[in-house]
Design a protein around this nucleic acid. Structure first.
Lengths: 346, 346
DNA sequence: GCAGATCACTAATCCGCTTTAGGGTGTTCA
DNA sequence: TGAACACCCTAAAGCGGATTAGTGATCTGC
């Protein structure tokens, strides 16, 4: 900046005014300074800016999943891609970190806060009884909760959420319309807030329709557990005629497990995946799946955060309800009593 | 820091000395200051530290893949997970950004450099004729190239690489051992350095063995292109008896495409996936695949970068050669002349 | 018993930028 | 013609640490 000042023949303060659009310099001087700065390829040091009270120009994102449970995943990168799109426009950096668990994640939040490393945070995978919102309140960091339900106890936090309840209802609608009355929901991690929302909604929908043989089983999202749980529930007597999987990985693994037991999809059992991706089109039959635009989800979250950083009020934004794309894995329910014989391919 | 100084009854300089292990304070004072700092949960502001010449305590990573081509992926998150493990130990932050293409990525490098945002960079997806190493040289940023071949033209850059040539040779060994003589390699993006290395090696191995019906086809790594190319090459006369896919997604899509054409795996055609993941165990038969430890790959890369940041010399580190895990998708070659009739399941 | 060295600590400067408080100059109006 | 007021610009302080140059006080050696 000294360089610019010297070459433009003005003081450093004038340079600062000129480059930041502040009043106090003539338009001609401003243009000259801008020219010199551009020519020198100058960019303000974020450290210096941060130190003089402008904030770190960075937002943080922590992913608390143990490394080994990081499997095939499409959602997260799509989400981050959308986030980046919005952040890049404003030249905001994204500080990314992985953590072992939520406690670890909280420690990261505290450290980042103490080090003035971030101006705001994006929080993913909200849980039932989550300590993070309280912490964020305490630290006073602007933050957006991604995928949580609106939470009136934390008026300072913005929330971007999809209406799982409505989506679950639409799936149940579709399945009962096809005649299914015995449905098992192979859910994800029990601790996650959206897992619990889905389980609650399923129960409510079942009660409303008088279906007694509908329940949820929680898992760790892995293909292994997806397959194991599928085998277990399909061996019940009578077995369910429809399975709802909380992610695509388990759904695909479940179809394979069903095939091993001699059950064909959708003749013997219908399958719905709560997450659409290329995976759903890699098995036969293609999986009926709930689709959402994860990239747009990310964009929305990032926009909410920038709005918060600009001093906007916190709010809850709902993204479109995931829509069920019906493909080949859902069909009419057949009544069957028990057994193991195989039907032919549908 | 003023607070600490006041509460400990010493000057701010003394606090700085005490907390940074510099001589100039007594051990008792040092302990007292440390106690106060800990009690206050104090952490130095990265901005201030950076401004006084300590560096930004941050390394950067840019992923230049268009958002839409971000599909199901296991490699990248595993890699980042390993990187984080090492960086977290040293309290180094990871600044992450997505870019549209390499030119965009270069712009990000320049900006980060000008803004003093990062102390070093991790560069992924090296390409043939890549402008990034030159740029990194020019900017003088410590950097590690992940997945490139050692490059003597850029002595300042460290490289962490897997020996694709050896891995490809092992695959060709396995396949020719099974009697395959017509092999098609369904490769990834033509611009990537490792794609070209694999293609070159395959050609060399084929020449060495006198196999004339061996070639590579490049794709965009997507399931769609994987399937399309599979259909095309299997319709050739005579068709290949073995297919090598450059990633798991295409391999799985390819198996499905083969099935549509009435070719069964491995009876009619053997399949090898160059990337192992849960995906490879979601299809029947399970896919023979080249496995590597992506997390360890990330750890190694991060360690090289920290070593560079500590003033260590740049070097090329080779990680273990990906090992072929033989599963059900590879079998003995059958000679067939043309046609479309189907063999039964193997 | 006194110079010189050592030790424990403080004062002052700097990093690069923003911002507040002035300081000239020129114009306007009484 | 002088006061009031814009207008452009400069000087200086401050952000939170690290660092360098001191400053007393205690210790060492002769």
């Amino acid at each position: 900046m000294k360089d610019i000042a010297r070459r433009a023949g003005v003081s450093e303060s004038a340079v600062s005014f000129a480059l930041n659009g502040r009043p106090g310099v003539s338009e001609t001087t401003r243009a000259r300074v801008r020219g010199v700065a551009e020519q020198l390829g100058w960019r303000p040091s974020t450290a210096a800016r941060a130190l003089s009270g402008e904030g770190a120009a960075t937002v943080g994102l922590v992913l608390a999943r143990p490394a080994h449970s990081l499997g095939v995943d499409s959602f997260f990168l799509q989400l981050v891609s959308g986030i980046q799109e919005v952040l890049a426009e404003r030249h905001l950096g994204l500080l990314f970190q992985m953590a072992e668990d939520v406690a670890d994640e909280c420690a990261v939040y505290r450290r980042w806060w103490a080090e003035h490393r971030v101006d705001g945070l994006l929080m993913v995978d909200p849980r039932a009884d989550d300590p993070r919102p309280d912490l964020l309140d305490e630290l006073g960091l602007p933050a957006v909760v991604i995928g949580g339900a609106p939470d009136e106890r934390h008026p300072g936090l913005s929330t971007v959420w999809a209406d799982d309840a409505a989506a679950m209802a639409s799936v149940v609608d579709e399945l009962t319309g096809l005649g299914h009355r015995r449905i098992v929901h192979i859910a994800g991690l029990p601790g996650l807030a959206h897992t619990q929302r889905r389980i609650r909604t399923l129960r409510a929908e079942a009660d409303r329709r008088g279906l007694s043989e509908v329940h949820s089983v929680t898992t760790d999202y892995s293909d292994a557990e997806g397959a194991a749980v599928t085998r277990r529930v399909l061996r019940a007597s009578p077995p369910p005629t429809a399975l709802i999987y909380d992610n695509d990985v388990m759904a695909v693994a479940g179809v394979a497990a069903a095939a091993e037991l001699g059950r064909s999809v959708p003749a013997d059992v219908s399958v719905v995946s709560w997450e659409d991706s290329a995976l759903c089109r890699m098995v036969k039959p293609w999986l009926s799946a709930l689709s959402r635009d994860s990239t747009e989800f990310g964009r929305t979250a990032a926009r909410e955060l920038t709005s918060l950083l600009d001093g906007g009020a916190a709010r809850a934004v709902r993204v479109p309800v995931p829509r069920l794309t019906v493909r080949g894995s859902t069909g009419a329910a057949v009544s069957r009593t028990g057994g193991g014989e195989t039907a032919g391919p549908g």
